[in-house]
Simulated assay, not measured.
Amino acid sequence: MSKTRTGKTTRTRRPKPAATTTRPTPTPALPVRPVTPDFITVQQMTAAYTARLADLPHIPVTAWTPQPDGTLRAHLHDGTHLIHTPTGPTPFRALTPCPAGAHHDNPITTGHDLHGIQNLVATCTARHGRHRIHPLATAVRLAEDTQPLDSTDLSNDQPKEHPHP
């Protein structure tokens, strides 16, 4: 406070603080759900535990994927699909691929059953009804069932005329 010439006291003004531009702090982005969840369900734990009790190959708990029909499915390295049905008469079914291109569906209860079915299906030669396109490795094994191709049949083909514009 200071006095003026007339003897009155006045207040001295303080300078206004400089205007600072404060930027709002950005809100953190919402977390994105990972493709492979970090959590497991009770059904996955039950399937993995039941598979270990049945002496099936070791399959991690997170490898058992729930299906819309209430079953759980796991894939083995040889292409076999194990399906766990908690309420079914047999707890597991094996969908085993055969050399002819089909999948054999068999109920299994032990690892010995699974190994026996895989050996049986590996020797399958049935055509399974419809014609299938085989991978090259399978086609080479099945090449003995094909007819030899005569190159004279190919050389007798006449080229087709194409219309000119």
Rank of each mutant, 00 (worst) to 15 (best):
F92W: 09
L82Y: 10
L95Y: 13
P60Y: 00
L72G: 05
T90R: 13
L82F: 13
L56R: 03
G79T: 02
G88K: 08
L72S: 11
Q67K: 08
G88P: 05
T62A: 14
T90G: 08
P89I: 01
P86L: 08
I83W: 01
H84R: 02
H81A: 14
P66A: 09
F92H: 00
H81S: 07
H75R: 15
A63H: 11
T85L: 04
T87E: 12
W64F: 11
P68H: 07
P60C: 01
D78H: 10
H75M: 13
L56T: 06
T65K: 15
P86Q: 06
W64E: 04
W64H: 08
T90C: 05
D78C: 10
I59P: 10
H75G: 08
P68L: 08
T90W: 05
G88D: 05
Q67A: 11
P68G: 06
H77Q: 15
T71A: 11
T62K: 15
H81E: 13
H77M: 10
Q67M: 12
T71R: 10
A74L: 07
P97M: 08
I83Q: 05
L76V: 00
A94E: 06
C98L: 12
D78F: 09
L82T: 01
I83F: 01
P86R: 09
H58S: 13
G70C: 11
P91I: 01
P68I: 07
D55C: 09
H81P: 00
A63C: 05
P57K: 01
T62L: 13
P66N: 09
P99N: 13
G88V: 09
L76H: 10
W64K: 09
P91H: 07
T80N: 06
T87N: 15
R73Y: 08
A94K: 02
H77I: 13
H81I: 15
L95M: 14
T96V: 15
D55S: 13
H77R: 14
G70Y: 13
W64L: 06
T90L: 06
T80Y: 03
A74H: 05
A74E: 03
Q67W: 00
R93I: 09
W64M: 11
L76E: 00
P89G: 00
P57E: 01
A94R: 02
H77E: 15
G88F: 04
T71M: 13
L82M: 03
P66Y: 03
D55W: 02
T87C: 12
P86E: 12
G79K: 02
T90H: 15
R73M: 11
G88N: 05
P66V: 00
H77A: 14
F92R: 01
Q67E: 09
G79H: 03
R73P: 00
T65S: 15
H84V: 01
P60R: 01
H58R: 15
P57M: 03
G70W: 12
I59Q: 05
I59L: 12
T80R: 06
P99L: 12
T62V: 12
P91R: 15
R93G: 03
G70I: 07
T87G: 08
D69G: 04
L72I: 02
L82N: 02
H77W: 03
R93C: 02
H58Y: 06
P57H: 08
I59D: 04
P91S: 11
L56G: 03
P66F: 10
P99Y: 14
P60A: 04
D55Q: 12
P60D: 12
T85M: 04
H77L: 09
P86F: 08
D69I: 03
P57I: 04
A63T: 09
H75S: 12
